[in-house]
């Protein structure tokens, strides 16, 4: 473990939805440049976990640190903080009334007060990076699911976040479009982006993840590097999950 402080740290985090214990005693860290894949059966709390990092979900116990700062401190400016964390949703959530360029430029111009010209240049760069340079003035309704998700990734990247969170980014896509999105994510990982990805795509995990967190019933049951997790899971629950995944 390096001596540099981790980018994201969960300390004894608990969350309840009324009676339902969604997250139980989560303790974990993500180092700079690390790619973590979170997997597990549905209802295990994977999405809830990453949504606590940018406070789309609130916790009742414990602490979460981002770049060393307690994200629930009273002194924290929530909006500024959120603009610093990249988030990619399962259903893309592009703004349908804005063009692709405007989607990407909205936050940089409104929150970071960048000029429209600068923001548009950056948007063009990012679209090239995700392979959609020609679609800069198209509208979300004119794009396929895979294209929309890639625009969503560009939109998150436009804010130059130190870390990116992915909430099942390919689950809502038709199978033939999953590859193009995973390719973008893989190139991000190789360029050194710190990432937490909730995903079922095990090949992606094998190729670029540094660690896998296996969650079940609100707890991180097992962690490890992808190769040993997939070939030799240590816990019974993980074994059951992986065999279910392979059999269907």
């Amino acid at each position: 473990m390096s001596s540099v402080a981790p980018i994201i740290r969960f300390e004894a985090v608990d969350k309840w939805y009324a009676e339902y214990h969604a997250l139980a005693n989560i303790n974990a860290e993500v180092a700079k440049g690390e790619v973590v894949v979170v997997c597990g059966p549905s209802g295990s709390g994977k999405s809830t976990l990453i949504r606590t990092v940018n406070r789309l979900e609130e916790i009742q116990k414990g602490r979460i640190y981002f770049e060393g700062q307690d994200i629930h401190a009273g002194s924290l400016e929530l909006n500024k903080f959120r603009s610093h964390v990249g988030f990619v949703f399962q259903s893309f959530n592009l703004f349908p009334h804005l063009s692709v360029a405007d989607n990407i430029m909205l936050a940089p111009t409104t929150v970071l007060k960048r000029s429209k010209a600068d923001a548009r240049d950056k948007a063009a760069q990012l679209l090239t990076r995700v392979g959609l340079a020609s679609k800069i003035d198209a509208y979300p309704g004119q794009l396929s699911g895979g294209q929309q998700q890639r625009v969503a990734i560009a939109r998150a990247l436009a804010m130059d976040p130190p870390a990116m969170l992915f909430d099942e980014p390919t689950s809502a896509l038709d199978p033939e479009m999953v590859g193009e999105v995973l390719q973008v994510m893989k190139s991000l990982a190789r360029d050194g982006m710190t990432m937490i990805c909730v995903t079922h795509e095990m090949n992606f995990a094998r190729e670029v993840a540094d660690r896998v967190w296996f969650m079940d019933e609100g707890r991180i049951v097992e962690t490890g590097d992808p190769e040993s997790f997939f070939s030799n899971p240590k816990t019974e629950r993980a074994r059951r999950f992986l065999s279910d995944l392979r059999s269907h």
Binding site: K80, S83, H84, S91, N93, F95, H97, L106, V111, A156
Partner: peptide, 28 residues
Amino acid sequence: KSQLEAARALGLTYLQSFRKVVLPQAVR
């Protein structure tokens, strides 16, 4: 709600999210 969520996740304030994302679509 996901539209508002996406805007907030980018760092826009409630009012900004409303003005630039929700209201334009609602009026249409």
